[in-house]
């Protein structure tokens, strides 16, 4: 099932359909500038970031939070993300693909609340960001 309308459409263990996030340096730059982190090389320039001791320009951790929130909204357009909690385990690099995953770990049909486990992996399949979300859905 690609889109969920109500709590009745959700099954325990269900995996959300991921999308391919845009981690291009251009997109990362725009995001970083919009949140006020546009200065310096960290999110702007691979060479400058390497001079600062980083492996390259990074994807901001909160951009990964943004990708995960989007995945939830694409899965269930009527969902309200009540809480999203993300742990930044290691950096994601700009211009490198990453993959998103989310699994339903709990369903409360009475309150119409769903709990999700979340992760973002890099191209080497290493988990870089993980977390949880609490999502409210319309009742069936």
């Amino acid at each position: 099932m690609s889109s969920v309308a109500t709590i009745d459409d959700v099954e325990f263990g269900m995996e959300l359909v991921p999308f391919e996030p845009n981690t291009s340096l251009e997109s990362v730059r725009a995001f970083a500038k919009a949140v006020g982190w546009g200065l310096g090389g960290r999110f702007n320039d691979h060479e400058q970031a390497r001079k600062e001791g980083l492996p390259g320009a990074l994807v901001p951790g909160i951009m990964a939070m943004g990708f995960l929130t989007t995945m939830i909204h694409r899965w269930a357009p009527a969902a309200i993300v009540e809480r999203i909690d993300t742990v930044f385990r290691a950096p994601l690099l700009a211009d490198e693909p990453c993959s998103l995953a989310a699994t339903v770990t709990d369903i409360d049909s009475h309150t119409a609340i769903v709990e999700l486990d979340l992760s973002v992996k890099n191209s080497a399949n290493e988990t870089r960001v993980f977390g949880t979300a609490r999502v409210r859905l319309p009742k069936g």
Binding site: F31, A34, M63, F67, T69, T70, H73
Partner: peptide, 10 residues
């Protein structure tokens, strides 16, 4: 911008 760069469509 933050929404669009996150891939948001809603």
């Amino acid at each position: 911008t933050v929404a669009r760069m996150s891939g948001e469509t809603l």
